[in-house]
């Protein structure tokens, strides 16, 4: 195992690089047809996940969406079991029952991601209610996309969280799209997501989602407030996904989003933004980045070998786990 940096800034950059490379490896391997499940990659959006992961305690519960690889990994989810899940193997984090859209690692508080838009929102609020009833000191993090806020259950859940003053932190990755549909056809012109959240009674803010340092700082402050009992909070982060909604490829040939937007957001690559900010930071250099790349590639290769070599679930067990 490689020594991970102690310096929190270095760690943020390395963690982003790691998430990026883990997903790039998925994009690279996917066409081989071994990962036989839909995948929603977060390439371009890593700063939010990593900033949140850094601000939460390991024991703080988190739930997420169809696009949850980065959240799982940033929370500390196991890499081998993650890949094995995508390969549909018994050693997967959900024993191959869930695939990419149903990730779980209870050792690090990652309580589950699910594939129905908005589905984990009330589940997260319920986890927070559970911690409140049991007198536990935890902040439950609920990852959502901009599209999920259009589900009625978001309002219902947020409303209840406010009524009962639950320790919940909503993290909204606003990437401007729900599949191919831009937000302007889905929400009224002039609506600001964080104001909408605020009107329900959540402590809300909106920030750049591609600067990992500011994300980490903002989230840390919000987590502290929620932990201190100040009531549920909502952070909107503007970001952008690079690849197609679902799958390993670019799909900008379809012309559904302005080329200019894509170019601008790619120029604001969260990793390059961080690198630029780190130029004069002690312990950071392009050599260090190179070294990290090497270490991470080795880790990824080993995890892919693990996933490939892992055993399939026994076909006869397809009906297991229906009841506890």
């Amino acid at each position: 195992m490689n020594a991970l940096p102690n310096d929190p800034s270095l760690k943020l950059v390395r963690d982003m690089l790691r998430v990026r490379m883990i997903e790039e490896a998925i994009a690279r391997e996917y066409p081989k047809g071994e990962m036989r499940c839909p995948v929603h990659l977060s390439i371009g959006q890593e700063a939010v996940a990593v900033g949140v992961g850094a601000a939460l305690e390991r024991t703080d519960p988190a739930v997420s969406t169809h696009r949850s690889h980065a959240h799982y990994l940033a929370k500390g989810g196991d890499l081998k079991r993650f890949y094995a899940e995508l390969f549909g193997k018994e050693a997967g984090c959900a024993k191959g029952r869930g695939g990419s859209m149903h990730l779980i690692d209870l050792d690090v508080g990652f309580e589950g991601s699910t594939a129905i838009v908005g589905n984990t929102i009330p589940v997260g609020v319920g986890l927070a209610l559970g911690t409140q009833v049991r007198g536990e000191n935890a902040v439950t993090c609920i990852f959502v996309g901009d599209g999920a806020l259009e589900e009625g259950v978001f309002f219902e859940s947020a409303n209840f969280a406010v009524v009962r003053k639950l320790p919940v932190l909503f993290i909204c990755e606003n990437n401007n799209y729900s599949v191919y549909s831009p937000i302007r056809v889905r929400q009224p012109t002039g609506r600001k997501i964080h104001e909408f959240a605020s009107s329900i009674g959540l402590h809300s803010q909106s920030h750049d989602g591609n600067d990992v340092f500011s994300v980490a700082e903002t989230v840390k402050a919000a987590v502290d407030d929620v932990r201190a009992g100040k009531g549920p909070a909502f952070l909107e982060f503007a970001t952008y996904r690079w690849l197609e909604h679902c799958g390993p490829y670019y799909d900008d040939n379809l012309g559904y989003r302005p080329e200019k937007d894509v170019a601008e957001w790619k120029a604001r690559d969260p990793i390059r933004v961080a690198e630029a900010k780190m130029q004069n930071h002690p312990g950071f250099s392009s050599d260090v980045m190179e070294r990290w790349r090497g270490e991470i590639a080795t880790e990824i290769d080993a995890a892919l070998v693990f996933a490939r070599d892992a055993a399939w679930p026994d076909t006869a067990t397809g009906g297991d786990y229906v009841y506890a």
Binding site: I121, G126, Q132, F160
Partner: peptide
Amino acid sequence: NGRVFDVPTSEAAMTGIAVGAALRGV
């Protein structure tokens, strides 16, 4: 009121909230 309480008219959320609470041992 911490254990027996009235709720908003929000059947979908209140059901998911029961699921989440159960995951936390409640």
